Amino acid sequence: MLYAVSHTTTYNYDAPVSYCHNIAVLKPRKSPGQELLEYKMQISPEADEISERVDFFGNYITRFSIQKEHKQLKVTTVSKLNRDYESHRASFRTEACTGITLEQARKTLQKTEADVLEAKQFVLESIFIRHWGENIREYANKSFTPGRSVFEAAEELMQRIYVDFDFVSGFTSVSTPINEVMEERKGVCQDFAQIAIACIRSIGLPARYISGYIETLPPPGREKLVGADASHAWFSIFIPGFGWVDFDPTNNQIPGNQHLVTGWGRDYYDVPPLKGVVYGSGRSKLNVEVDIARIS
Rank of each mutant, 00 (worst) to 15 (best):
I210E: 02
Y85E: 09
S143G: 01
I203V: 05
I43F: 11
L260E: 11
R53F: 10
P273Y: 08
S126E: 00
N251C: 03
Y162H: 09
V288M: 06
A105R: 01
G276K: 11
I43R: 12
C97A: 15
Y139S: 01
F92I: 01
I66M: 08
S79E: 10
T172Q: 04
L274P: 04
M182N: 10
N82H: 11
K111S: 13
V226T: 13
F192T: 12
I100Y: 14
S126C: 00
F171C: 01
F238T: 13
Y162L: 02
R89G: 00
F57N: 02
A24C: 11
K285F: 12
A119F: 04
V25L: 15
I237D: 11
Q104F: 05
F128L: 12
S211W: 03
V277I: 07
P240Q: 08
H259E: 08
H259M: 04
K30Q: 09
A228R: 04
R89E: 00
K74C: 11
K224D: 11
N141F: 02
Q258C: 07
R160E: 14
V288E: 09
R222D: 09
F192L: 13
L274I: 05
K111V: 01
Y39G: 10
E69G: 10
A198R: 01
Q253P: 00
K30D: 10
G263D: 13
G263M: 13
A119S: 09
Q258A: 06
D191V: 11
L205R: 04
I210F: 00
W244A: 05
E223C: 02
S31C: 14
Q253C: 05
V290G: 07
Y11H: 12
M182V: 09
L260D: 09
G147N: 08
A47L: 14
F151V: 09
D270Y: 15
V163G: 03
I200W: 03
K285Q: 12
I195G: 12
Y3S: 14
K107Y: 03
R208A: 02
I129E: 05
E180M: 05
H259I: 06
A15R: 13
E113H: 05
V25W: 15
P45C: 14
G265D: 14
Y19P: 12
F171A: 04
V288N: 09
H70A: 09
I161Y: 03
A47R: 15
W244F: 08
D291W: 06
S173K: 08
D191H: 12
L102H: 01
Q194L: 05
G263H: 15
H131V: 01
S284I: 10
K40N: 15
D14C: 07
V168R: 07
W244H: 07
G133S: 14
I200H: 02
S143C: 07
D164H: 10
